[in-house]
Amino acid sequence: MPAGDGVTERQRQAIEQIVTSAERECGLTFKVYVGQLRDGRDSAQALLAQSSSEAERTVLTAIDPTSRALEIVTGSHAATVIDDRTCALAALAMTSSFQAGELVGGIRNGINLMAQHARLPERRHIDTV
């Protein structure tokens, strides 16, 4: 069975466009994984670690449609611009769409939301005057 079977070519292209658009918007690397997550969050973290060089700047969205599980994992740098609260909001948006059977729509909503909220943390006490 070829890789990616279960997601149509059109859906795959749509997800690619979403990822590219989000990366262009905020400068982080977005990755989407759709498939089995045998060990839940550990699997998602391991999957992010596989992307070695860019791992710290990567936001991985891992979706397991079979067990209806979603994991969003952010690298160390990505976590400074996309906090856990934003991830939770994106997860809520995505799962809402997944419940309605909209896989690509959910991915679009969640990733767009994270890209739009990506910002550097507010700096305080930097005035040298």
């Binding site: 069975m1 279960g6 990822v19 990366e23 449609p65």
Partner: peptide, 26 residues
């Protein structure tokens, strides 16, 4: 339902083709 109909192998979409998570990785 898209999510219910998923029966295939893993799909990984990323713009980083050199990483271990290239498109169609799995």
């Amino acid at each position: 339902s898209d999510s219910d109909a998923f029966t295939g192998d893993a799909l990984v979409v990323s713009s980083d083709a050199d990483s271990g998570m290239a498109i169609g990785g799995g």
